[in-house]
Amino acid sequence: MELPIRLSQDSREPIYHQIEHQLKALIAGGHLPAGTSLPSIRALSKDLEISVITIRRAYQNLEIQGFIKTIQGKGTFVAEVNESLKQEVKVSSVKKTIENAVQTALNYHYSIEQIKDIFDQVLDTYRDQEKED
């Protein structure tokens, strides 16, 4: 199975971190329900064109945090993740995306107030759309 993971070599975030976060998001978002079999480290290494050393690191971290489990001789599977942990991941994932946007704005030398305005504008368009629906 190919996982919808998109890595950015340009990002400051290390690759293993990117893999870890995206897998967490896929699990928390319900795209990968508990029990789903994950690709082997070697197979994911091929798909993502990343060494097994890096993939193993990401898998190990996910296993420690209880997102996945490895059954000897059978493979790696998505673990049962409790709701609060899922929520935590979701929130942190949203936060992270917003942080990226804020970082971009700061790079353009906008002030916090200006960023807030832009954010409100975006929210307003979504609010309008919701009303139309």
């Binding site: 070599q9 290390p14 690759i15 290494s45 091929k46 064109e49 990343i50 060494s51 097994v52 050393i53 890096t54």
Partner: peptide, 26 residues
């Protein structure tokens, strides 16, 4: 890209190095 974990690089008989792929690209 798809297979290697390490790249062992040789140039004209000289060993340039043995690199872990991401360590090299990063």
């Amino acid at each position: 890209k798809k297979l290697s974990d390490y790249l062992f690089v040789l140039h004209d008989g000289e060993m340039i190095g043995n690199y872990e792929k991401e360590a090299l690209t990063e």
